[in-house]
Simulated assay, not measured.
Amino acid sequence: MTVSDWGQLLLLGALWGGSFFFARIAVAEIPPLALVLYRVSIAALVLHLWLRLRHISFAPAIARSASFLTLALLNNVIPFSLIFSGQTKIGAGLASVLYATTPLWTVLVANLLTADEKLSTSKLMGVALGIGGAAAMIGPGFFSNFGGPTWAKLAVIGAAVSYAFAAVFAKRFRDMKPVVVATGQLTASTILMTPIVFLLYDSSDILSANISIWLAIGSLAIVTTAFAFILYFNLIASAGATNASLVTLLVPASAIILSTAFLGERLEPYEFLGLALIASSLVVVDGRLLRWRRRIDIGKRT
């Protein structure tokens, strides 16, 4: 990956880590699936306005509406539903580690379905280190929450697999502007989520909230969804599905760092260990440092 790719990956990890702040506030008064609808619909509206202001046509997305409905299912509707279901029965620590397996599934799916992202030892080693880092950041609480029914664990793993297929599927949109891809996915997600929410909830359940909740929803939709998905699809087009999926390793790390910086929380020793393992995993997946070291060793022998 280039320096620009790494910058976008780190920024995306920070944004999606920050989304936990806003979601934690909003979910106190808004049902989870309704929050999903608000998140995707407001983000879609903002991006449509942005396209209009920049005179960028949305017509290419309309012409491929079936593909965008598939992307929305794989990247929003299915994984959100599976994660919400699984978390009714298993702890957040275990769920986050299962979610962090997304790069592993992406490596495997990309190896099967693409010609340019084949399996390598460095990728597998890096992903394994990253998953270990995510588990280490949970600390002792990870083992205390290891119980729960098998179906709930499989639901969260199913969400990770769905994200993997979504990352690979999104590569077919590399000929389109990332902002158009983001707008198309979020528009399709809004179309799919609207009937689900209105069938499940009364209007009083999803409309009654105070101003702080609506501010949190707006921040969640505009900053950590609309802008973040532009970065995500740009990263897929530039660095590939496997590298883009590494953001799932950064999300728990950035959430903990943000909590430390803005909420006065303290990092525990095991959290420092987790951060070190995640950083090591990114270096291994990138491969440049290992290749540089190998060239030095060869130079010394010659």
Rank of each mutant, 00 (worst) to 15 (best):
M1D: 04
V3R: 15
V3S: 03
Q8W: 05
L10T: 03
L10S: 13
L11F: 08
W16E: 12
G17C: 04
G18S: 03
G18E: 04
S19W: 00
A23K: 06
A26T: 10
P32V: 06
A34E: 04
L35E: 07
V36Q: 12
S41E: 14
I42G: 09
A43R: 04
V46N: 07
L47N: 12
W50N: 05
L51R: 03
S57W: 02
A59L: 04
A59F: 11
A63G: 14
R64Q: 13
A66I: 08
L69Q: 14
L74C: 08
N75L: 11
N75C: 00
V77I: 11
I78L: 09
Q87D: 04
A92N: 15
G93F: 14
G93D: 14
L94D: 15
Y99W: 00
T102L: 05
L108C: 09
D116K: 07
D116E: 12
E117K: 01
T121Y: 14
S122M: 06
S122T: 10
L124C: 05
G126E: 14
A128R: 11
I138S: 09
G141I: 11
N145H: 07
F146M: 12
F146A: 13
G147S: 10
G147T: 10
K153H: 12
L154G: 06
L154Y: 10
A167R: 04
F173M: 12
F173Q: 13
M176Q: 15
A182V: 00
A182F: 07
Q185F: 00
L192V: 04
T194G: 03
P195S: 06
I196M: 11
V197G: 07
F198A: 09
L200C: 06
S203R: 13
S204N: 09
D205W: 00
I211N: 08
S212T: 08
S212Q: 09
I213C: 11
T225K: 10
N234C: 01
L235M: 02
A237Q: 14
S238P: 07
S238C: 08
V247R: 01
T248Y: 00
L249K: 05
L249W: 07
A253D: 09
A255V: 07
L258K: 00
T260D: 01
G264K: 09
E265K: 14
E268I: 08
I278Y: 10
V283G: 05
G287S: 02
R288S: 10
D297V: 02
K300Y: 10
K300C: 08
R301F: 08
